[in-house]
């Protein structure tokens, strides 16, 4: 599905990612954990194609194609979905309009006919039930005046409608109360399938109680300093990130 090879990237000329390599197969869920400032969000942004992140080295192959050569919208249509850490408010653009435009852009890209308003609404309403969202939110402007929890649910709704191959969830759990977290996790879990992969970017173990990852990676100083199974997340929860300082210096020393 996704193969990241020695990826390096900078933001405002400051190197943030210093050589990341990661293999994600179809159907796998990978959690990327790490302290603040470790480069987690930069990794999400670089995969989605954010322009303020400059790739300075390395390769990313997505379903056999060079991901980094694609435009933002092309990646989206190819099935890469980023659930934003801070979903953007767009006054004046209806939520339902965005969903329909996005879905049809993707269908067109894949050579499928566009959905008419009736079929589209039936689909969206179905997904909204899953996310326990009020239908009225469809007709409001994108994220405008939404609470933190509503915004995050709206992200997952978009994900559910677009059915991406690769979903990147950037700190989707931040700012959610426990009930909202369960709803979001439920939405995410319903999308798990052998054809889909996910990257969960998170600071805390909490989200992983509801969405079981297959692999856990710890990111620090722009590198993956440890990888393991779900048990690694529990270990982090118990011991925090303090040990990373040592691990990092060891990595540096090893190099």
């Amino acid at each position: 599905m996704l193969s990241i090879d020695n990826l390096q990237a900078s933001v405002a000329d400051k190197p943030i990612l210093r050589g990341i390599s990661l293999e994600i197969k179809a159907g796998e869920v990978h959690a990327i954990m790490g302290p603040n400032g470790s480069g987690k969000s930069t990794l999400s942004n670089v995969l989605a194609g954010r322009e303020n992140v400059r790739v300075t080295g390395g390769k990313v192959t997505y379903r056999g194609k060079d991901l980094l050569a694609m435009e933002v919208e092309e990646r989206a249509r190819e099935g890469v979905f980023l659930a934003f850490q801070y979903p953007v408010e767009i006054p004046g653009v209806g939520n339902v309009y965005l969903l329909k435009a996005a879905l049809n852009a993707q269908r067109k890209h894949r050579g499928l006919p566009e959905l008419d308003a009736m079929d589209f609404l039936a689909l969206v309403k179905d997904k909204m039930k899953l996310m326990e969202m009020n239908e009225s939110m469809l007709y409001r402007a994108v994220n405008e005046g939404f609470s933190g929890g509503e915004k995050k649910r709206n992200e997952i709704l978009q994900m559910a409608v677009l059915e991406p191959h690769l979903s990147i969830l950037d700190e989707t759990d931040s700012g959610l109360d426990i009930d909202a977290l369960k709803i979001v996790a439920n939405g995410v879990n319903s999308l798990r399938s052998p054809e889909r992969s996910m990257i969960l970017v998170t600071h805390y173990q909490r989200l992983l109680d509801y969405i079981q990852p297959d692999f856990v990676h710890v990111l620090a100083g722009g590198r993956i300093v440890r990888s393991g199974g779900p048990e690694l997340a529990h270990e982090l929860e118990r011991e925090g990130y303090a040990w990373i300082g040592d691990a990092q210096s060891q990595t540096v020393a090893a190099q």
Partner: peptide, 8 residues
């Protein structure tokens, strides 16, 4: 960017 990241 947000709109484009949704394929628009």
């Amino acid at each position: 960017f947000y709109l484009r990241s949704r394929g628009v």
